[in-house]
Design a protein around this nucleic acid. Structure first.
Length: 387
DNA sequence: GCAAATGTCGCCGTTTGA
DNA sequence: CGGATCAAACGGCGACAT
């Protein structure tokens, strides 16, 4: 009655954006390079054909580091760090703007290369995937090596792979020997290889939970594994506590999901400077409308309609609020979205300056699917029987 | 005076309908 | 009819992820 043991791989591209840039600019290999900021200007060409790259020290703005090469990481520059902060640590590092079209291109290439070997793939964003290798014959190490080579042949890029009986452990393992790593673990390896790691390595334990666990004297996965379930439950609630316990013991039965539909589509932007609701009203309104238009375009391009429209505001003190509104009928019309988003905005007291504005469409349906009989297309009022 | 953009999920309080 | 309950939808929001 036991479910057969699975063989699940997690593949993570190494410093993906930065590595793609190095394909384009091989002269940067070995240097600290940072992708980030909001520049869209590509490096300028000099007379002699060499390129003039921007340095971190030249940057002014509020962008964050999206990716950095391992040389930059050695200087203390990591993802999510403010570019200004990074510039203090590595003023000479090269700064490149993100080129998402290029990254998407290489993303398709590496995924197609893997699919040529093992088609059961779960997409986890642009640079990582899970692969279900259960039922593949042959040696795990060799199979994983084959996949790594296929990725390298297709893209010129390296990746790191973890292979274990489940997604949770494989995700941890793909990170253990980065870059160009390959880690294969069985359940018997958990005490030696997983338990010594900090709890933060578990996908799903973020900064908040890590902090709370630390306050309980729990820093490693081993300590979490032997924590009293009642203690965890008292601090995290039943559901999350149960999950913590299972995760610490390497238990995870989640399947590899090979197909899924998006739940929401959104656009947001951080302003170059904080904007005042009244003083900068015209600017804000323009940005707001543009965001609505972009969301509408995204919906149309992907053939979706949204029935719930929401907004997101971030104030100068970094406080974030959201509001949303469910419409009588789904839409992809920029004017309808703009009106709904405007309704949401009216419900927010604007006492502080704003640093970010976002617009989102959720409760998505396919725009080619037939409408539900209760929700006629285009803003007609539903007929009310009685009253 | 620093901290992006996009997306998913879970929890909770409120409302509504039965 | 009042009260108790329950489920579903909605809206807000936090946590987490890449």
């Amino acid at each position: 009655m036991n479910a057969p043991s699975r063989r699940i791989a997690h593949l993570d591209m190494d410093a993906f954006y930065a590595s793609v840039e190095l394909l384009r600019y091989p002269e940067l290999r070995g240097l600290p390079v940072v992708i980030g900021g909001r520049g869209d200007r590509q490096p300028a060409m000099r007379e002699d054909g060499s390129r003039r790259f921007a340095r971190l020290r030249d940057y002014a703005g509020r962008g964050v580091v999206t990716t950095s090469t391992y040389e930059a990481r050695a200087l203390g520059v990591f993802s999510g760090m403010g570019v200004m902060k990074a510039a203090q640590l590595a003023p000479d590092a090269v700064l490149l703007p993100a080129d998402f079209d290029a990254y998407r291109h290489y993303s398709r290439l590496f995924k197609a290369a893997v699919a040529g070997i093992a088609p059961q793939i779960e997409d986890r964003g642009i640079d990582e995937i899970y692969i279900d290798l259960s039922g593949f014959p042959g040696d795990t190490l060799m199979l994983a090596q084959r996949i790594k080579q296929a990725v390298r042949d297709a893209t010129g890029l390296s990746c790191s792979i973890g292979v274990t009986p489940n997604k949770l452990l494989s995700k941890i393992c793909s990170d253990l020997e980065k870059p160009d790593g390959l880690t294969v673990l069985s359940l018997a390896d958990i005490p030696n290889r997983i338990w010594p790691l900090p709890v933060r390595k578990i996908n799903g334990i973020g900064p908040k939970a890590t902090e709370k666990l630390a306050a309980l004297g729990i820093a490693t996965i081993a300590e979490l594994a032997r924590a009293e379930p009642a203690l965890l439950q008292a601090h995290f609630g039943r559901g999350y506590a149960g999950w913590l316990h299972e995760a610490a013991h390497g238990i995870d039965e989640r399947p590899v999901i090979t197909h899924s539909e998006p739940k929401s589509i959104s656009r947001e932007t951080t302003f170059e400077r904080d904007l005042h609701a009244r003083h900068d009203r015209a600017t804000l309104s323009e940005i707001f409308t543009a965001l609505c238009t972009r969301v509408a375009e995204d919906l149309q391009r992907k053939a979706y309609l949204g029935r719930t429209i929401g907004i997101k505001l971030r104030f100068d003190d970094f406080r974030t609020v959201t509001r949303d509104l469910t419409l009588p009928a789904p839409t992809a019309d920029p004017a309808v979205i703009r009106r709904a988003a405007g309704e949401c905005l009216r419900r927010v007291p604007l006492n502080r300056k704003l640093r970010l504005l976002g617009v989102r469409a959720s409760a998505l349906s396919s725009s080619s699917a037939p409408q539900d009989a209760d929700t006629p297309p285009q803003g007609e009022l539903p007929l009310n029987s009685g009253r």
